[in-house]
Design a protein around this nucleic acid. Structure first.
Lengths: 344, 344
DNA sequence: ATGGCTTCCGTAAACGTTTACGATTTCATA
DNA sequence: TATGAAATCGTAAACGTTTACGGAAGCCAT
């Protein structure tokens, strides 16, 4: 069922059929109607390869999602809603979105090189941005439109959207200080993901804004999952003077942390304050419910899509450049996991 | 950087270049070496559109992942490891795997029709199979190779792999009966996903095998997330005679269930037995830790890939047909959430 | 010297689209 | 009526690749 078959069936040329289907102006409205009708009846859908070959564009966007061991167990709850949002925008432009999950046993650079080299996608969304991310320099020199979810220390001119980790750190720190806490710890990912650096920076700045000196012993690095949270709690318990509060960069860590404290007979929310990130269905149903930060992942996805489109020549006219380099604000949702310090 | 440029640069014809790159036999080893060398130096990667157009094959497989509201929050933890496994097999055959997430505001049938019509993929993996799934009949009549994760009541000849829900139900029921429980409830998804039907069937059969009559009031339907678990617990509490044990089809439900019981002052593992499904990082760190079933999702993914390849003419020779229609066994992992019935 | 292999390589068609260009018709206007 | 513009459509080239086919060269045996 090619366009040629369709043309033969209608007794008109394939050029006219193509123009009719693509909404070009120089075609008789009546003919167009006949073509569209026949296309629907015969179930004709244009072959993407032929179209791509001719126009040099694939009408697909790739969303590269990290699937490392660390994030494999919880990444989905984050990415799925974002993906939803991105897709809702692309659908309006007949763009198909595909998720590209680079396997753990393949080098992300090589993977990206293959995808880009094959002209598989017209643009890319890059997530889990590293502090120094070779993917960014690669895409820049290949002039592939892209946007990153998460800023990076890598140089160059490209749009990025990131969560407001400084804001989160500042809000959490001030809140906990107001509650009377003095030793406030944080739990951040052990990997080289840039998120960790930004978070620690924000934490540091927030502390110094209140005249409190930074204590490196209060920064706990671990995997961003339940096991990591468990380890953080264990490390906290081992300190001569245990922190009275802790800020976690990942809500999955909270479960492991809760568990470790439960084993030690320590009640989060009473004996120790916990602030998590980010709000999810989970955080509302933990006991105690987690104080954390709310964010509309779907809206984030929408902004991501718009930022990408603004860098693509074919769509840039509809999307002004001002939607790029965005720091996404988040709102604190109080839970039962923190409160006034009752200790000595 | 097309094959033509490469040929010009080497002063040989494009036909020879193509043959050299594709490992055809009728090319001088020395020439082949030169071609491969030049391709690497100049960073040549064959254009996928051109290749697809010519061979009628795209070298990509689609993994259609459900992203409905219900599963958006937890689907990732399940699919990511499966995806990993699938990808590890496809990589060996130079096949690229892409995740296709059908947005919630688009009809899955229409989405699939577009993907297939465009000749976007050579094969498909379908998940979240419905009891009556129009996608299956569609793919069958279009003769697109596919495999489903989850069996279906839809007729036709196609490979599927499913988890052993009967086994899970039987094991859980016998275990709980041995513990002295009499009123054993189950929590299953409210949607039309076939998984729910199979699970209830297994539960029913397991009960009757022990001479216990089936009580429809013990089947609780809810969303497969934390909120659903909360609702299930609420419904259980409302019954005149509360069940003494409950089997959940989703471990995320356990969190919500725990929460509701916590609010009611009831301790899972002591006052009520909970058996969950499936084991995850979470289930090991909940308090109490969840008795549940273990499964290697990566291995599951590998089998899925093999089943699909066995139906694709180009690969079938390497993959015998016996790997299809598989019921995946699972192993129980005891936790703290169930035990002997201590009630009256 | 001729014929027949084998080895290697070039030529050209084909895949399904889109689109620049030109051809034809229609129609109003001079 | 002649003319030009507008509307509509057909023709053919082009995108990058693979591959069937044939040709050229080399070699060996007759």
């Amino acid at each position: 069922m090619s366009i040629r078959d369709l043309a033969r069936h209608l007794n008109i040329s394939i050029g006219t059929v193509s123009r009719a289907l693509n909404g070009k102006s120089d075609v008789n409205p009546e003919t167009r109607e006949r073509v569209l009708q026949a296309a629907k009846e015969l179930g004709y859908v244009p072959n993407q390869s032929g179209r791509s070959l001719r126009q040099g564009t694939t009408n697909t966007i790739g969303f590269m999602i990290e699937s490392s061991i660390e994030t494999a167990d919880n990444g989905g709850s984050f990415f799925m809603p974002v993906f939803e949002g991105v897709q809702s925008v692309f659908r309006r432009h007949q763009l198909d979105l595909v998720a590209l999950l680079c396997g753990t046993d393949e080098d992300p650079g090589a993977y990206l090189n293959r995808i880009v080299g094959r002209r598989f996608v017209d643009g890319l969304i890059i997530s889990a941005t590293m502090r120094n991310d070779p993917r960014i320099t690669f895409l820049l020199e290949r002039k592939i439109p892209f946007v990153t979810l998460g800023r990076s220390a890598t140089g160059g001119q490209y749009p990025w959207i990131d969560l407001d980790f400084e804001g989160v750190a500042a809000t959490a720190v001030t809140r906990l200080l107001k509650f009377g806490h003095q030793r406030i710890a944080i739990g951040v990912p052990a990997s080289d993901i840039n998120l960790g650096y930004v978070f620690v920076d924000g934490y540091r700045r927030a502390l110094s804004a209140h005249g409190i000196s930074f204590d490196p012993d209060l920064v706990f690095r671990a995997n961003s999952n339940e096991e990591g949270g468990y380890r953080v709690a264990t490390a906290m318990l081992a300190q001569k003077q245990m922190p009275t509060a802790v800020i976690l960069v990942n809500e999955n860590m909270a479960i492991g942390l809760y568990r470790r404290f439960y084993e030690a007979g320590i009640h989060p929310g009473r004996d120790i304050a916990v602030v998590g990130f980010r709000e999810s269905t989970q955080s509302r149903f933990l006991s105690p419910t987690l104080t954390c930060f709310r964010i509309s992942l779907r809206d984030l996805g929408i902004k991501l899509a718009e930022a990408l489109l603004s860098t693509m020549p074919a769509f840039a006219s509809n999307y002004p450049q001002d939607s790029i380099d965005l720091v996404w604000p988040m709102e604190l949702v109080p839970g039962e996991s923190d409160g006034p310090w009752l200790g000595t």
